[in-house]
Structures are given as C-alpha cells and as structure tokens.
Design a protein around this nucleic acid. Structure first.
Lengths: 332, 332
DNA sequence: AGACTGGCTGTGACCGGTCACAGTGACGCG
DNA sequence: CGCGTCACTGTGACCGGTCACAGCCAGTCT
C-alpha cells in the first residue's frame, strides 16, 4: 500500500489473510469460494476502500469493457440523442463508453479512429451520416468491430439506422393524401446520406404519383438555411416537405414574414420531431425518429460481436408520422 | 508478436534493432536520440502498424490522461453543449474523455462517481445543476479533482458556471427598460440551482424597482410545461420572463392559441438562445449562454490541477442579451 | 489402507509499457 | 596516454491485475 496509489489486491489479500488470487476470485464471482472466506475478503475491501485497477485488468485480459464513440464535431439532435442512448444502453450492459469527435473529413475520422482504438476500446460506434465518414473505413483494419450509426441506408448487422426512405414516404404520402399535388422539397445537405435518401424517396414518390416536379431546394439543416429557402419557394407549391424540423421552422418564419399563412396557404411537414416542434407556431407535423432505439440497437450489436456471434440482418428502425397543425388540405 | 494482440514495443524494438527502451523514448519525444535511430524506429512502427497499449502505460504511470464526465440522464441543451465542449477542449489539450450519466439523486451520482473514478480517470467533470448532485460530493474523497459544471452559483476554481443572476438581470432590465411594470416569471424546476438563481434575481429586481409582485409560476423546462403555464398567466401581466426558451415557446403557443398576441399584448423573454429561438414565431428575445466557454473553462481547470496549480478565483462566464421580436413596449 | 475425487486456495509467470540505473563509445583535454 | 564528459542506448525491475497450474485437505470408493 504505497502512498498515493491506493490499496492493491495484495494489500487486500494481506488484510484478509488470503492470497491475491482469492481476492481476484471473489471480485470476479468465481464459484467455489467458501462463504466465510468471501466475507473476509469483502470486509477487507470495504475497510481499505479498495478499488480495482482497471488498467491492470485491461492490460492482461486485452479487453477494456469500453466502447468508443465517434461523433460529429458539431452535433445535431440526432447524433446527440443517439450517442446518449448508446451511453445508457452500454451502462446497462455493464460496458463503459468513451467519446471523441471528428469533423466528417475522411482524414479526421481516420485519426479519431486511430485515437480511440489506441485507447483500447473493445468496439467502436461511429456516427456515419456522410459518405466521407464511411470512406474513412475503407481498407482500414482496426482489430475491433466498428458499428455504423445513422447512415440511413444499411439494415445490416454492422449498422444501426432509421429507415429514411420510409420516413420520407410517411411525410410525402401524408401530403398527397391531403390532396396536395404541387409539393416542393427542401433537402438537407446532400453530403449527408440521410438527406440523399429523403430526397430520393421524395423524387420517386412524386414521379410515381405523376405529380409536377418542382425544384428541389437544399439547405444545411439550420433554421437559418430554412429561412433563406423561404425566398425560393415555388409560387405554385401548396406544400413543402422539409428534410428536418429546424429548416421547417426557419422556412415557416420566412413564409409568415412574407405574409403567407401556414397551413392555410402552404402546408409544411418536417422531420425529426424535435421537442420544440410540439409547440411551434403552428405546431409542426413531422416524422418522428427513435434515436433511443438506434442507440440500443448499436449496443446490442456490440454485445453480439463480443460474444462472438455473427452479425445478422437486424432490420431498420421505423419512423412514425406525428400529425399536428402545420399541414392541411390545399385550398380549393 | 503473438497473434491477436498486435505488435508490442518489443516487436518494434526487434524490428528496428534497438531496445524497447529506445522505442519508448522515441514515442515520448525524449531528447538525445540520434535522428537515424529515431527514423529506424519510426519505420518499424509504421511497418508493423504498431499502436501503443495505453492500459500498460496507465498501469505504470498511474495516469490515464482521461477526464471523466458525469452528465444528467436526460440532458438538456445546456449540459449537452457543455459536455461536448469539454470533449473538444480536452482533445485539444491532449486528453481524452469518458462519459457516464446519472439521474440527479445523490445515491446515483455517488455510484456514477465511484464508477468513473474506478475506471481510472485523472479528473472528473460533473454537471451539477441540482443541490442533490452537489450533496453527493459531500464527504466523498475520490482521489482526483472534481470540477463542477453549471451550478450557476460558484465563481471559484473548482467550478465553471455562467452567472445566472446576471442573465436574469439582463432579461428583467430589458423588460423594465421597455416600460413594463407588471412582469411575471415562469421559473424552471426549483430543484435546479440555476432556476433558483434566476428566480431570486427576478424577485430582487422587482422589489428593487417597487413593481407589483405577481405570482411566480414553475415549470419543468419542457415546452409542454410552458404551454400549461399559459393558463395561469396573470391577466394584468404585460410581460413574462421565462426561465428558458423551451418553456417560452410553449407559453407563446398557449397565449396565441388563447387569442393573445405576442409581443403586442404580452412580451416574452426566454433564456438559453437555443437555435430555434432565432426563427420561432415571433423570433424570441432571449439570454444567450456560452456553454462552449464553460466547457473550455472546465478543461483549463483540469489542466491546472494536473499541473499541480492551486484552484484560483476564475470568475463567471457572462451571458448576453439577444433582442429579437418577442418583446416590445407595453401598449399605452 | 491407499488411491481418488472434488472443493477450495496458493504460486509464479505474464500482459506491455515506464522508470531508474547502467553501460558504451567517441571526443576533448591535460 | 589516461581520464572525464557527453551523447546515446541497453538492462532489469516494477505497476496491479489475470491466467495456468499446482497444492492441500477432507471425504469416498475399492
């Protein structure tokens, strides 16, 4: 028991009058320890305030029981909620999380990966919303499983994503069902796979319904960009499908400021169901994404990997439509 | 170089034809190594794809270069932004972060502390918005510095906070300056120190200006609770100071739904400057909190601690007022 | 009685780094 | 020429756990 470093297993062993190995066995719940021995050890641990050194443990076992998370530098609500869900799910599974961030450039993601793997994690969970992030994984062997999050496009065992096309379908079919025929799309930045998928589905649906194709606008997810897009809305449009809630808010602001009313003159549907959308003016009709489920799924995959199971088809997480007051039937 | 575990320092040493110690020296930038030796080592590292085992390093040095973060179970924008800022600042300082969450009960926070300290972090950063969280620290000696975040009330070396009273003052004085005399306050949950401080400052200012004291409402930070509070707004009030933006949104929704107009009949000022407040209807006048600065400050404190410096008076981080369109002079 | 089993516990090597302490050879100087 | 100095490199112990492998001491079986 040398000064600063706190008691070690040997100190506990000495105090309890057993060997260090017995202490180890007690700590790891090995069967076949006499209850009275176990109690002695437990008492010694308590008295000394012993805390196991996980660095030593990790060194010899080669596993750290930690999952590394890599998220975007400036996180949106999606990644943020998801990563937090991962953290909670991991804790429930007896795992820890460690977090680092990287901007989406391939080089940076690769650095972050190097960094977090070097830190000795057992698995990596990577928010991969953009192709550049995915590319960072190409040809890189890090020795631990890497689970991709929120790519939107892979219902496979190595990724946990929400079905973006299904979400877009929900939004657009809602609009079409209301009777809208001239629908415009305000897309997210198309470097995002999710933005691409929502746009693709929008296009397909419009074509399929043989509706006129209005120009597709592109924002950057921010309320400001939605506001800016307000100036480019097609005068013929009666409805807009915004690729996220924030842009929808900005758009509505611009529209109302220009004297147009929502939903009377123009319907707007968002995507995300952020907590403000419930009480925005007007309350926003939007597509709800269950980020919590994504986080849990990711941890399930990690656990399966650690148990040596093969990745399997896990299926998408399915979004739902939340109807509120920003959409209505077009005026006759 | 045994199968699964990847190459070790000895493997690199063998490959480069030097001793493991020389490899260590190269890795740690020790002076006095012949450039040609260094190059050989670097080359060997590259060829072998060597990655230093940080568990081993942590074991012998007793430091992990990691800071542990404890945040709330369901994080608001403040904690979330702050923790993310900590993460970035830490990375810039060559430190890593590890995150766990805990609900605010004293017992849970204590568990989380135990957990993260046992994980071998060099310092802990704890989001302590409620008294119960702070109490978890009483009489607990964990052996590493614990920095408190967002308590709102301590401009000292062990904490990084935003001056809540100054923020509230900004909001209330703005309203008074506009000519309002009957101002109501929608407080946050009073278990939050920040909510208490905003309320206290509000009260003091109202008393100081000898204005009528209207009932103080209490919400739970959510838009829903703000909406609910709409029913309890005093009919005499011409302005409301909401303790955060989200509740302000809910409140405005309720007000407008009840036929009252903002800001013509009633001014509303929020707190936080969330990204939607810029384009809500009407755009929200609010108090901006620089969470990024809090995160940076926290890491500065950690670094100072690790360098053995004494905690010193660091001062508050000062919020600012963002004037938008939800406030106006009262109608004559 | 002797061998065997099984429950429980102890011994020592080892994980992969860092630290403290020695070397080693080249060079300068008296 | 001998010695000290300096620049550079090597040696072995050690951090605190876990693992593989004994040991030990009942009780049971033949």
């Amino acid at each position: 028991m040398n000064g600063k470093r706190g008691p070690s297993m040997h100190d506990v062993a000495a105090r309890a009058g057993v060997s260090h190995q017995t202490v180890s066995r007690v700590l790891n719940d090995f069967p076949g320890i006499r209850p009275e021995t176990r109690d002695k050890v437990l008492a010694a641990i308590e008295e000394l305030g012993y805390r196991r050194n996980l660095a030593a443990r990790a060194l010899v076992t080669g596993r750290s029981h930690t999952i590394g998370m890599i998220g975007p530098e400036i996180p949106d609500i999606g990644p943020l909620s998801t990563l937090h869900a991962v953290e909670r799910a991991a804790r429930d599974a007896g795992l820890h999380t460690m977090m680092t961030s990287a901007d989406p450039s391939t080089a940076h993601v690769r650095d972050a990966l190097e960094f977090i793997v070097g830190r000795g994690v057992d698995a990596v969970v990577l928010v991969a919303q953009e192709h550049t992030v995915l590319e960072a994984l190409d040809g890189v062997e890090v020795g631990v499983p890497v689970i991709r999050l929120l790519t939107g496009g892979e219902p496979v065992g190595e990724a946990a994503s929400i079905d973006q096309r299904a979400g877009a379908r929900l939004a657009v079919e809602h609009l079409i069902g209301l009777g809208h025929t001239r629908i415009q799309h305000l897309a997210g930045p198309l470097t995002f796979i999710e933005a691409q998928l929502r746009r693709d589905e929008f296009r397909d649906l419009i074509a399929q319904a043989r509706l006129p194709e209005l120009e597709i606008l592109e924002g950057d997810w921010t309320t400001d960009s939605g506001f800016a897009a307000g100036a480019s809305i097609d005068p013929r449009a009666t409805a807009v499908f915004s690729a996220n809630d924030d842009m929808a808010f900005g758009l509505i602001h611009a529209l109302v400021a220009a004297g147009r009313s929502v939903p009377d003159e123009l319907s707007v549907v968002g995507f995300d169901d952020t907590k403000t959308s419930r009480h925005s003016l007007p309350p926003l009709t939007t597509v709800r994404q269950d980020f919590e489920a994504v986080g849990r799924r990711a941890v399930e995959l990690v656990v399966a990997h650690m148990a040596g199971e093969l990745p399997r088809e896990t299926g998408f997480i399915v979004p739902t439509l939340v109807e509120r007051s920003s959409t209505a039937a077009p005026r006759a």
